[in-house]
Design a protein around this nucleic acid. Sequence first.
DNA 1: ATGGATACGATACAGCTCGTATCGATCCGG
DNA 2: CCGGATCGATACGAGCTGTATCGTATCCAT
Lengths: 202, 202
Amino acid sequence: MEPARKQTGAQTSSGGRPRSPRIQQAILKAAVDLALESGFRAISMDDIAARANVGRMTIYRRWCNKAAIVMDAFVARVDPGTLFLPAQSYTESIRLQMRSMAKLFRGKDGALIRALLAEAQFDPRLAVELRDRWTMPRRKMAIAYFQQGIKDGFLRPDVDPDAMIDILYAPIYYRLQMGTGPLSDAYVDEIFAHAMKGLRKV
Amino acid sequence: MEPARKQTGAQTSSGGRPRSPRIQQAILKAAVDLALESGFRAISMDDIAARANVGRMTIYRRWCNKAAIVMDAFVARVDPGTLFLPAQSYTESIRLQMRSMAKLFRGKDGALIRALLAEAQFDPRLAVELRDRWTMPRRKMAIAYFQQGIKDGFLRPDVDPDAMIDILYAPIYYRLQMGTGPLSDAYVDEIFAHAMKGLRKV
DNA sequence: ATGGATACGATACAGCTCGTATCGATCCGG
DNA sequence: CCGGATCGATACGAGCTGTATCGTATCCAT
């Protein structure tokens, strides 16, 4: 029901005192620190303002709620990462990419995306932001990599790359949220191996 | 930080006026109806009390927050369902079970579990409830069915049933939350088929 | 340099929700 | 028939939200 963010750089363009980038960073850091310390739900805009030593209006001028702040901070944190790096083999590169994502989720970023994904279930605008700035960019990269793998004969030509993404990566999100077990490298390897070779006995 | 439920049937046993089961049902129905109409986040305890024609204290005597109410209502709604029914073949029964879960998620119960799963990310007690009363019972059933399938030679003997569950069912949860596409039977069939035969070209 | 325009910290305000407390009335069991 | 817990209703303090306003600070254009 609430807007997920106000307007990223909409500063009516000309005239007046420009917004301080130093304050911007202070707010982002305060929001992330507090969210990791006390939990996203427990903190308020007041808390963030107090921690960042800024007025509450200064925050509301840029973001409309704490989810939008954490969203910006999260994207800035993880943006340079999670690519398909070259490995010993084509499929090995996929496995390592899955591992790096699991490692990300085990750390602080895991707590952040857990909160963002949950919050997005109640905030349609945040859901769009999360899809546009986190989910879809990574899916597009994966699709391109998988299509290349199909062309090169490493992957079955009759698979939909979208379904392939879901089979490989959805379990990582699932375990992040459900807590049915540790998000370990061993788990990732298991998902990868079984998904690659199939579950049916031949 | 907040308790997920108070005590299910703790009515100090003897003496005094017993709690009305009619009121219990009215509250559960009011909570679900309102959550589906306006969204879980938008409704308050006051709204539920008003819709159920009940005092707010009457609700707080039984549940400690709206998530606990919706949790009870959800479990009561879907409890008799989602079993592995006999089909033309062993694996076909798995596919049909996945379809029935997707169908559940497409309907009103999908909206409910979406809210509960999201809320559980912020409420540890609710997370335990959700795992004990929804997730684990179904995982246990699936594990038993898969172990039988391994013994009967339908499934690879070197798969961990837990990993198998995640590969098959996590994509359904993923799409429910991410909205990367429709939760259609065609999608379920695709996940099932690819997971069964594997992604790697042989 | 000077004035217009905006950001900034601080404070106040109404509205909503929560959780608890309390009231008299109701209803059940011993 | 009487103790005891539930019931609807109401009130209360506390916290958070979103907006408004004040005086000050800072930048851009003239």
